[in-house]
C-alpha cells in the first residue's frame, strides 16, 4: 500500500514542481503558487487558474476552477463514512480528498483498511504536492515541461490503474465506460469541468429507475407520516421517505439485528430529522458498523 502511494506521490511531486515553475514563469509571485497548493489543493483547477489569471481574467479563473472542482461533492458523499466519525477528522479529511486519494481509497475493501488507505494517501499526497510546488518555485524554469517527462500520461494511467479493482463489478464498469465516452465526446463542446460531471448522468438514470420501481410498491404505506423535512425538501425528499418506510417493512428482521448491534450505545438522532414512527435503528447512518471496526 505504501509503495503504491509513494509512486503516485513521486508523480505528484514532479507535477507540483512543474506547477510552481509554471506559476512563477506566468508572472505570479512564489507565495501565491505555494498558497494555492496549500489552500486550494486541486491540481487541475490550479493550472487553469494560473493560466486565466495570467491572461487577465480573474473572475473566469474562479468560476472555471470551481466548476472543475464540483466533482468533489459526490466524492465527499461517497467517502464520508470512510474518513471518520469525529468532526475534526471530517473537516481535515475533506481537504485531503483529491481524485487520486479517492481512487486509491475506493479500491480498498470497506472497513478499517479503507480508512487507513484514505489517510495514508491523503497525507502523503498533500505533502508531495506542496513540497513539489515549493521546489518548482525555487527552481524556477529548471523544473521545466511536464510533457517532456511524459507526466501527463502518468496521471490518467495511474488513475485508471487505481480504478481497476472497482471496475471488476459489471454494472460499475458499464456506467464508468459510458461516463468516460460521454465526457470525451462533449469535451470539445462544453467548458472544462462540465463534461466530467455529465458522467453522473448514468448513475442518475439508475437512481431514477430504482425510485420508479419502488414507488408503486410503497404506495400502500403512503399513510405513514411524511416528515416536515421531507415535505419541505419536496418531491425527492418525499420519495426518499417513502422508500425508507418501505425498506423498514420489508427488512424488519435486519433492522432488529442492527438495533441489537447499535443497542449498546445508541446514536443520538437529531430530533428534527427523525420521523416520529421510525425506530432509531433506522436512522443509524450507513457505515456506523464499519466505523466501529
Amino acid at each position: 500500500m505504501l509503495r503504491d502511494v509513494a509512486a503516485i506521490g513521486a508523480a505528484m511531486l514532479a507535477v507540483g514542481a512543474s506547477f510552481g515553475a509554471m506559476a512563477v514563469a506566468a508572472g505570479l509571485p512564489g507565495w501565491a503558487a505555494v498558497a494555492m497548493s496549500m489552500l486550494v489543493y486541486a491540481g487541475g483547477a490550479q493550472f487553469m487558474a494560473v493560466g486565466l489569471v495570467a491572461a487577465g481574467s480573474p473572475v473566469a479563473a474562479v468560476l472555471a476552477g470551481l466548476l472543475l472542482n464540483a466533482r468533489h461533492l459526490p466524492f465527499g458523499l461517497t467517502l464520508g463514512d470512510t474518513i471518520g466519525r469525529r468532526l475534526r477528522h471530517r473537516l481535515i479529511g475533506s481537504h485531503l480528498m483529491t481524485d487520486e486519494a479517492t481512487a486509491f481509497t475506493l479500491g480498498r475493501p470497506a472497513g478499517a483498511a479503507r480508512r487507513r488507505a484514505f489517510w495514508l494517501a491523503g497525507i502523503l499526497l498533500f505533502l508531495a504536492w506542496n513540497a513539489g510546488t515549493v521546489l518548482g518555485v525555487l527552481a524556477g524554469g529548471v523544473a521545466g515541461d511536464p510533457a517532456a517527462l511524459g507526466l501527463d500520461a502518468a496521471f490518467p494511467a495511474g488513475l485508471i490503474a487505481l480504478l481497476l479493482p472497482t471496475l471488476r463489478d459489471r454494472e460499475t464498469r458499464r456506467v464508468a465506460l459510458a461516463g468516460a465516452v460521454v465526457a470525451v465526446l462533449t469535451t470539445p463542446l462544453l467548458p472544462a469541468g462540465l463534461p466530467v460531471l455529465l458522467a453522473l448522468a448514468g448513475p442518475a438514470l439508475l437512481a431514477v429507475r430504482q425510485l420508479r420501481r419502488r414507488a408503486p410498491v410503497a404506495d400502500p404505506a403512503a399513510g405513514s407520516p411524511v416528515t416536515a423535512e421531507a415535505a419541505a425538501t419536496g418531491e425527492a425528499g418525499a420519495s426518499e421517505a417513502r422508500v425508507t418506510s418501505e425498506a423498514r417493512v420489508t427488512s424488519e428482521a435486519r433492522v432488529t439485528g442492527e438495533a441489537r448491534v447499535a443497542g449498546e450505545a445508541p446514536v443520538p438522532v437529531p430530533a428534527d430529522i427523525a420521523p416520529a414512527d421510525i425506530a432509531p435503528a433506522d436512522m443509524v447512518p450507513a457505515g456506523r458498523k464499519e466505523e466501529s471496526c
Partner: peptide, 25 residues
C-alpha cells in the same frame, strides 16, 4: 438517511466521475 440501493450507487457514481476524468485527461 440513504436507502441501501442509493448507498451502493454512490461508489458507482464516484467511479464514473474518475473514469471520465481519466479519459478526458
Amino acid at each position: 438517511d440513504l436507502p441501501e440501493w442509493a448507498r451502493q450507487l454512490l461508489p458507482v457514481g464516484a467511479a464514473a466521475l474518475l473514469a471520465a476524468l481519466a479519459a478526458t485527461a
